[in-house]
């Protein structure tokens, strides 16, 4: 699929406090946009604006998929998100979480297929464990598994290697480098700035 993400003059402010202003960027298929800036500069807010969870004060987010312009809510089925703000159900097992989110997305996977997917992110054999019993690093791996489940056009990674050990970071590196769609990364890690085809500096 051919796709393009355009951030057109984005600005966000809360009463009496501007968060960011004048954000412009354009990234095409297979390219990576890195958003960086100090703590509190609005990286996570910008990610939520791109996802359509927050309306921008000015400007717009455009995702073109196969020459079709998608609006704020139409973008969502094309997004995979890994973020500290994204929380899965602690009361469900990893497999149940994946089955549920696949189901409400209109996709059907067998438990065996999902076990294989979990294996790819280093959670092989742990699919029957409750997500609540996972360590923070395992939860991050589970988020990657979920984000990649529907093979999204737009993968948004907020602090992509948070809580991950070295093998986990290597897995993230492999995921980012092998992506065919658009990847947006919000990070402060110097090593992750190297992924950038386009960079947005906040603050």
């Amino acid at each position: 699929m051919d796709s393009k993400l355009i951030l057109d003059g984005l600005a966000k402010s809360y009463p009496g406090r501007p968060v960011f202003t004048g954000i412009n960027a354009e990234v095409g298929c297979g390219k990576r946009l890195v958003i960086t800036g100090p703590n509190g500069s609005g990286k996570s807010t910008l990610m939520k604006v791109i996802c359509g969870f927050i309306r921008p004060t000015r400007g717009r987010v455009i995702l073109n998929v196969n020459n079709q312009k998608l609006n704020r809510l139409e973008i969502r089925p094309h997004i995979g998100l890994v973020s500290p703000d994204l929380v899965l159900y602690d009361e469900l097992t990893a497999i149940e979480n994946l089955l549920f989110f696949a189901g409400v997305s209109g996709l059907y996977f067998s438990a065996r297929e999902l076990e294989n997917r979990l294996d790819l992110v280093g959670l092989g054999g742990r699919g029957s464990d409750f997500a609540g019993s996972y360590s923070s690093g395992m939860k991050q791996r589970l988020k990657y598994c979920l984000a990649l489940l529907r093979d999204p056009e737009l993968l948004l990674l907020d602090e992509p290697s948070a809580n991950l050990d070295e093998p986990g970071k290597a897995l993230v590196d492999e995921i980012i480098r092998s992506r065919r769609g658009i990847t947006v990364i919000a990070t402060n890690e110097r090593a992750e700035l190297e992924y950038a085809d386009e960079i947005v500096r906040l603050g």
Partner: peptide
């Protein structure tokens, strides 16, 4: 409260 609403918004249509 458990912050799972964000994932639900992302993956599930509102009417569902």
């Amino acid at each position: 409260e458990s912050k799972t609403a964000l994932a639900l918004r992302l993956y599930s249509p509102a009417e569902a």
